[in-house]
Design a protein around this nucleic acid. Structure first.
Lengths: 265, 265
DNA sequence: CCGAATTGTTCCATTATTTGGAACTTAATT
DNA sequence: AATTAAGTTCCAAATAATGGAACAATTCGG
């Protein structure tokens, strides 16, 4: 019943923790704070059980219960995430290269990594725009309709790729969104050959990007970097040209990782 | 021995969840990824137990295990936090007023809220730099040596304040940091009277701020906003002047909350 | 204003999960 | 090759989670 096609973990049951995480997912994915009864309907658990679970989550600061009995994501999550982000080695290594790429093109640059079926954006470098859409950082997006996502998929061995594609449920965000594993697979093969991927307004109308895959030697990270911008400014010709600097930046990041992380393995 | 005096939750036991959260805390607060044995020593649990707990956390994406057997915070935390942040009503209401204040003064403006003994920064508006998560957002800071923290404390009823102060352990970050509940309490009384607080280089040498308290009617939020900058630019005279605009901005935010959230209660 | 319905909370015997010691496997060290 | 340390698996005992039902509080309809 989850109307969400972007689960990071495919509902594996991890005992008590797994059940609690389902609740956290419900609340954090909701558009507004949920009442007890709303969660009751969504979670399909006995009232007593649910109540205790929610109480525990609130006590730990993972959820917050306001005066009107509505549950919202807890601020403790922010604290965890801030640390998780600040210390992420991959991101730290990539950052200067993202900046270079942003400066060279003037457009927005993203760094994302594949987790399950989703791309999680680790970083975003914008021009000087006053409007902050940096809420992108940390957000999970589908892998099948983003440049970074398709670049990441092109890194997977054939077998894993087939498995992953089999588990996808395609949401048609725009007229250009892939809606079947077949056409997607064909494009991914092409991407694997040429070494870069496009997003032709597949996730958001009017937004295009060119992306290149990035990975760590131990395959802990499989993701990519992208240059993103409005279609009126980024012609497909321009994106083709930019496939070169994106790939160069990707190479630099991977070289940085080899130096920083490589010797250990 | 956690060397960290800024716990958000005072180690209450929430059954299974509580134990797992202790582990998450350990890993996210560490300066570098931890090995199994490191965690074993820190957590003081039987090997078998710890191993299964870590496995569960990894399966849920809350931790990640790299090829060298080191545990790091998981990226799923980012996804949770991004949602938690993007939808936070308090922050959404405050944001335009933070911008106004930044524009009026040219200095950095913060929004923070009291959680337990810590201030969690919800937002930050800087001059020309695009805001990035690593700045401060999401980070927990002590309440006793930050402007926002002391402003928040001035909102507490006498009894709660005494309780909270009793539980504090003071870390002396600079020569000006409060190191006893007595002097802190005296200053908080003064702040409650005058309606604004200063940070006189108490958390970081060379950094000053002036802050005003902000709260919601149901006291779900007790926090504050501040103007922060280097001491050489922000004389105490200037900070005194700025106590007016900070308080005005705080009033606007609270008015915004009354309009937005008030009718419901 | 009252009774009915809905919503939220507590209780406790049953059930399922977690626990932790020990045995075992694998990797690192001498 | 032998020794130590690091990491993993197993299972009976201890502990925590479950869920039905009873209870309280709030909201709704007449």
């Amino acid at each position: 019943m989850s109307s969400n096609g972007e689960n990071i973990t495919p509902a594996r049951e991890t005992g008590t923790l797994g059940k609690l995480m389902v609740l956290l997912d419900l609340v954090t994915h909701a558009d507004a704070p949920l009442r007890f009864t709303d969660i009751l309907a969504l979670a399909g658990q006995p009232r007593g059980t649910l109540h205790r679970q929610l109480t525990h989550l609130v006590e730990e600061g993972l959820l917050e219960l306001d005066g009107d009995g509505r549950y919202a994501p807890g601020l403790r999550l922010l604290d965890f995430a801030a640390r998780s982000w600040a210390r992420n080695e991959f991101r730290l290594i990539a950052e200067p290269h993202l900046r270079d790429l942003q400066r060279a093109t003037g457009e927005t640059v993203h760094l994302g990594v594949l987790r399950g079926q989703s791309i999680i954006y680790l970083d975003k470098v914008e021009g000087r725009q006053p409007v902050r859409m940096y809420s992108q950082i940390g957000n999970a997006s589908p892998c099948y309709c983003t440049g970074v996502g398709k670049a990441a998929l092109s890194l997977l061995p054939a077998e894993s790729l087939v498995d992953l594609l089999a588990g996808l449920s395609f949401t048609s965000f725009t007229a250009s969104t892939h809606v079947s594993a077949e056409t997607l697979l064909a494009e991914i093969r092409e991407i694997a050959d040429q070494g870069y991927a496009f997003d032709r307004e597949e996730h958001e109308a009017g937004i295009r990007c060119v992306a290149a895959p990035v990975w760590s030697e131990d395959r802990t990270f499989m993701g990519g970097i992208s240059i993103t911008g409005p279609a009126y400014r980024l012609s497909m010709e321009l994106l083709h040209q930019w496939s070169v600097p994106v790939q160069l930046a990707a190479a630099s990041i991977m070289e940085g990782m080899r130096v920083r992380l490589g010797p250990r393995r």
